[in-house]
Design a protein around this nucleic acid. Structure first.
Lengths: 224, 224
DNA sequence: CGCTTATTTGATCTTGATCAATGGTAGTGG
DNA sequence: CCACTACCATTGATCAAGATCAAATAAGCG
């Protein structure tokens, strides 16, 4: 009984005994350091992961060895949904910052789902959110130019982090992997934005003006 | 009792009384013609749609008026998952071929989920599939060149349709919307592939050689 | 302090968008 | 059956966005 994982998800507390967590700090949450892999594409999907603190990214690596980040998993998010269906992981996940993660074994997760209707709702809700998030990414990659993609990502980070001033949780190259751009283009464009006074930028620290985030979710239009 | 919808999903029969379907042909399934809208972005998400026959596409329209197709919904697939969570539709869906679709009102769907554990599994499974499908699209858009994206889409269509020879269910422009390309590039590239003898092409009819599809299925967990 | 990893910046080259013209094809109504 | 129209597809010419290659700092970190 010493180790269990408890995560709030869409208002519902997900709790599950968690063998792997026994005796670890933080009530059974696992500690990952920047760059640590959480799970690997092509291996058996045997657990769902709830991110308590820090960021993960899901990636797929192309045959040519290039990484494409598919999803940014923020604190409060779930990763490794494949485990609920069975089969293999279709992406790899790794920590891009130090992170606390709760590992919920497949059997445990399924049992929880069967017993508690509220958890069902929570998980479906989370899945739908993630789906919509990935769709957003498709929109960026398919129709937007470099500058707009970068702004969109910055806005998303600000929104998820709850502040207009924040530290980028990743390198230029990692940003580029999310955006389908090269690291040079990311660097250049960020400086372009700074030169135009549209953002404040100092190393990894970013500050967005209200204007950029404000007319946001309404529609994305009237960019000013 | 006259109208009900019945769809097989991941081996489980989803069935629900369906007011809107009453008195319609095909046990309450709705008929859509090419181009008909199924639901619209920004409207109340009040029903899930199960595609029985034909293809839908989910799109988002950018402020500049360009369409980005986010997902191709094939026969047997579900669309409008947002309804399970509540809120607004985040994409629009329209038929790209004539289609038979089963409309399952939100309340009906939720009730079904609560009562039958099997349906829960089926829906989660479907959601996870769709998530992985959209992730695939992100990979295309983020890292692949025009030719590779087109090949990937053709392979997916062949796989979902179960045959190497099939009729494209959409125009060049619609293909382009899925791939984040222009219609000219799609046309050009298809002819390029034909010239090189890598595909057979005649109008909307496509035939892929084994070679194109073969060295790939292994990773995607042998769907058949 | 020295070494590795990030970042910035420049120069060049490729891809695919865009603009534009032409030919095809299917549906409609006389 | 044919003409008319609307949409679809092909193809060429031009151009810009970004990738790539390359080099020179700057920052972390043991």
């Amino acid at each position: 009984m010493s180790g269990y994982c408890a995560v709030k998800l869409a208002g519902v507390e997900l709790r599950s005994a968690c063998d792997d967590c026994k005796g670890r700090p933080r009530n059974g949450q696992l500690r990952f350091r920047r760059r640590d892999p959480v799970y690997l594409e092509g291996t058996q999907a045997d657990a769902v992961f709830a991110v308590v603190e820090g960021y993960l990214r899901e990636t797929r690596t192309t045959p040519e060895g290039r990484d494409q980040a598919v999803r940014l998993v923020c604190p409060g998010g779930l990763a490794g949904f494949e485990s609920l269906r069975g089969g293999m992981f279709e992406t790899s996940a790794q920590a891009i910052t130090d992170a606390w993660v709760c590992r919920i074994p497949r059997a445990e997760a399924l049992r929880g789902l069967e017993q508690r209707a509220g958890q069902f709702q929570a998980v479906i809700s989370n899945l739908v959110d993630e789906l919509s998030h990935v769709r957003e990414t498709v929109l960026w990659l398919g129709t937007m130019k470099a500058e707009d993609r970068i702004i969109a990502l910055l806005e998303q980070l600000a929104q998820r982090g709850g502040s207009l001033r924040f530290r980028l949780p990743m390198t230029r190259l990692e940003l580029a992997d999310f955006l389908g751009l090269s690291h040079s283009t990311v660097s250049r464009t960020l400086h372009q934005l700074r030169r135009e006074g549209r953002i404040r930028l100092e190393g990894r620290w970013i500050e967005l003006p209200r204007a950029l985030t404000e007319p946001e979710e309404s529609l994305l239009q009237s960019k000013e």
